[in-house]
Amino acid sequence: MNRVAIVGASGSIGSAVLKALIASGKDVTVFSRSSSATVFPEGAQVLRGDYEDQTFLRDGLMGIDALVLCVGTLIPATQVPIIDAAISAGVKWIIPSEFGTDSGNSEYAAEVPIIPPKVAVQEYLDEQVAKTQSQFMWTGVINGLILDWSLPRGVLGIDTSHKKAVLLDQGVTKVNMTTLPTIGRAVASLLQLSPKQRNMFANKLVYISSFCISQIDLLGSIQRVTSSPQSSWDVQFQDTEAKVAAGKEKLKHGDMLGYADLIYGHVFKDGAGGNYQARVGLSNQALSLPNEDLDEELKRILSNK
């Protein structure tokens, strides 16, 4: 799997994946919209065009071994034309735009509107695998909450600038979180696997995680690395049901930030699926992902704010 194409490489996840693919020595092709002025790092060929143009997509994907999608997930149609072109071009491995919380948990998926579109893409891929008699395979990456995306945006309930925290259900529920560099390394590691090894991940979700921690764990680490005693923080508590209700109300009025409230409210609800390693385990070892130190990662994240 040496020749890899990526769509959506300008976003937070896509740029981390692109960096890891280049570092691993892959021959990388980046697909970008004609209207985009994004400058991509050296080491990647860039093709600009229309994602609805099947000829552009198919021609660009000819000879590509694997396709990584890091695009919007609310509308399955965003990915489907690209998937169709990849299958037509003979791409052997498709990694759809998962990269989030556990879409394999049906109870959680039923509660969070952003998840069913991802499940729809999985089902479409399964249909195409059957239709083509397994001429290609797919693998979705589940990484839980993205620590270095979520913390700076305040959606983990911790405001480091003003030393304020809102902890859900006492802040003790442990959930899986992953850093962007580890997500990138996981994709690169998948594409380094031998044919026998990669068959372990054929047509299924693969679960990775940097940490399984609670909000209290996270807050304690932040206080250590910033040398700010607990007494200097304003800590309040909120019920997860209230968080979910607030999210639904925001969405009712067209506020897309309601999705964040819904996701984080459900993820931090005890037993609701945020701790997926307890349910299905992790593939960190199989993908040779390094152990990470929470304090060190937080130093990196906070220094980049």
Rank of each mutant, 00 (worst) to 15 (best):
T178H: 02
V166S: 12
L47A: 03
G258E: 02
D84H: 04
R279A: 11
A272I: 09
M137H: 15
S232K: 14
L21E: 07
L289R: 00
V235T: 14
Q277M: 05
V17A: 03
D102E: 11
K250I: 01
S97L: 04
K131N: 13
S106H: 13
N275G: 06
A109I: 02
S32N: 11
Q79W: 01
T132R: 04
R300L: 10
G154C: 08
S35T: 14
Q197T: 13
G273C: 09
K196F: 06
K174G: 07
K92C: 03
E98T: 11
K118A: 13
Q133S: 15
T178P: 03
S32G: 06
N284Q: 04
D148C: 05
S88A: 15
L125M: 01
K248Y: 00
S97E: 08
I6F: 04
V172P: 04
A20H: 07
G140F: 05
S227F: 07
S103L: 10
D293T: 13
T178I: 09
T226L: 12
Y259Q: 12
Q197H: 05
D234E: 02
T179M: 05
N304G: 08
L190G: 15
S288M: 02
K252W: 09
A120Y: 11
V91L: 00
P116H: 04
P195I: 05
I87H: 03
A278G: 14
N304V: 08
V267Q: 00
Y276V: 00
G60Q: 07
T182M: 15
T240Q: 04
W233G: 10
D126N: 13
T226Q: 09
R33P: 12
G273T: 05
A89T: 06
A242N: 13
L262R: 03
K243D: 14
S189I: 02
P117L: 00
A130G: 08
Y264D: 14
S221V: 05
G274D: 04
M137A: 06
I263Q: 13
I114F: 03
A16W: 08
G271C: 02
I82K: 01
R300W: 07
P81R: 00
D126K: 10
F99H: 01
I183K: 09
Q223N: 05
L180Q: 12
P96C: 04
D65K: 02
S24Q: 15
T55D: 07
L57N: 15
L298H: 09
K19Y: 03
K299D: 05
A23E: 04
I94P: 05
R48A: 06
E98M: 06
P152G: 03
Q215D: 01
L145Q: 09
F211G: 03
A120V: 08
G157W: 07
G14I: 14
V141M: 08
Q236L: 08
N291L: 10
